[in-house]
Computed example of a mutant assay.
Amino acid sequence: MAIEWKGVMPAVTTKFTDTDELDIPAFKTNIKVQLDAGVHGIVLGGTLGEASTLEDHEKRTLTKETVAYVDGKVPVMINIAEQSTKGAIAAAQKAEDDGASGLMMLPPMRYKAGDQEVIQYFSDVASSTKLPIMIYNNPVDYKIEVSLAMFEVLLKHDNIQAVKESTRDISNVTRIKINFGDRLKIMTGVDTLALESLLMGADGWVAGLVCAFPGETVAIYELQKAGKIQEALAIYRWFLPLLELDINPKLVQNIKLAEVHTGIGTENVRAPRLPLFGEEREHVLKIITEGIATRPTLPNYKNL
């Protein structure tokens, strides 16, 4: 399925049973609500999807189950976060075999590769697959930045098509547009900078709190796209305390707790993560419950 790099694409959480197996029924419950809200794609196995704890067979199961479940309604992408080029190429081939529409790719894990090594890594994977690739550029969390000069080289590969822009520098959206126009699509990847990035020209939003609040997230995107900025801003201002749960080391636990309270998820995480407890849990619960209590009435954003 071809990917249009636009709209809201949830970086979905991975659901686990009480015995630490994949919880496919709970996972599908959440995916259904995402589709009903009008999301434009699904991203599996990212940071929020607990990628570093997933076994290879679990990633493949998630991909196959999601592709079958969405049944062509939206594209399905799987994240690649590997330590070696060999491993990344193998992961890309498995994703292609399993029916994924595209890849989200982080730079090499653990080893802090130099610029040329990063370019070679992405280039080798791009040459090995027909799948379109979105490079996840998050130097804050992963300590490697893919610079404009590096993208200049990488864009020689036709299937490197988009960037998940998570540098936290809002002006980078403009820099990318100046240098590459529409050749490199921009999916903002920081929930607390989402509306700002969209207004500066980002094409879409790989979102986190969408996992618990899909309608509000898609409404913000559709409203700003339709030029209804004040309506989008009103929802975004309500949303911001919740969105801040995404820019936190315990974003997985935070967002899974929010999913529980909106009725579309479970709180199970995979060790070494633990569910929130004590004062930290109470603080996050307060934000979630206040958000739910003041949840805005959404306009008919699907028909703007």
Score class of each variant (00 low, 15 high):
Ile3Met: 08
Ile3Glu: 03
Ile3Pro: 10
Glu4Pro: 00
Glu4Ser: 04
Lys6Trp: 02
Ala11Asn: 10
Val12Ser: 13
Thr13Pro: 04
Leu22His: 13
Ile24Lys: 04
Pro25Lys: 08
Phe27Val: 01
Thr29Tyr: 02
Asn30Ile: 03
Val33Gly: 01
Leu35Asn: 00
His40Trp: 05
Gly45Arg: 02
Gly45Glu: 09
Thr47Glu: 11
Leu48Val: 10
Arg60Gly: 06
Thr61Gly: 07
Thr63Arg: 07
Thr63Gln: 06
Glu65Asn: 09
Glu65Lys: 13
Ala68Ser: 15
Tyr69Asp: 00
Gly72Ser: 03
Pro75Leu: 05
Val76Leu: 13
Met77Arg: 04
Ile78Val: 15
Gln83Ser: 14
Gln93Met: 04
Asp97Gly: 03
Asp98Glu: 12
Ala100Arg: 09
Ser101Trp: 13
Leu106Lys: 00
Leu106Cys: 06
Ala113Gly: 13
Ala113Tyr: 15
Asp115Arg: 05
Gln116Phe: 15
Gln116Leu: 13
Gln120Ser: 11
Tyr121Ile: 04
Val125Gln: 09
Leu131Pro: 13
Asn137Gln: 07
Asn138Asp: 10
Tyr142Cys: 06
Ser147Gly: 07
Leu148His: 11
Ala149Ile: 02
Val153Asn: 11
Glu165Ile: 09
Ser166Gly: 08
Asp169Cys: 01
Val173Pro: 09
Arg175Lys: 12
Arg175Pro: 04
Ile176Leu: 12
Arg183Thr: 06
Arg183Cys: 05
Lys185Ser: 14
Asp191Tyr: 14
Thr192Glu: 13
Glu196Ile: 02
Leu198Val: 01
Leu198Phe: 07
Leu199Ile: 07
Gly201Asn: 04
Asp203Gly: 03
Ala207Leu: 12
Ala212Gly: 14
Phe213Ile: 06
Pro214Cys: 01
Pro214Ser: 01
Val218Asn: 01
Gly227Phe: 15
Gln230Ser: 12
Arg237Thr: 09
Val252Gly: 02
Val252Arg: 05
Gln253Asn: 10
Gln253Met: 10
Ile255Thr: 12
Ile255Pro: 08
Leu257Glu: 07
Ala258Gly: 06
Ile264His: 04
Gly265Cys: 02
Asn268Trp: 12
Pro272Arg: 08
Leu276Ile: 03
Gly278Trp: 12
Glu282Ile: 01
Leu285His: 11
Ile292Leu: 15
Ile292Val: 14
Ala293Cys: 08
Pro296Ala: 01
Asn303Arg: 11
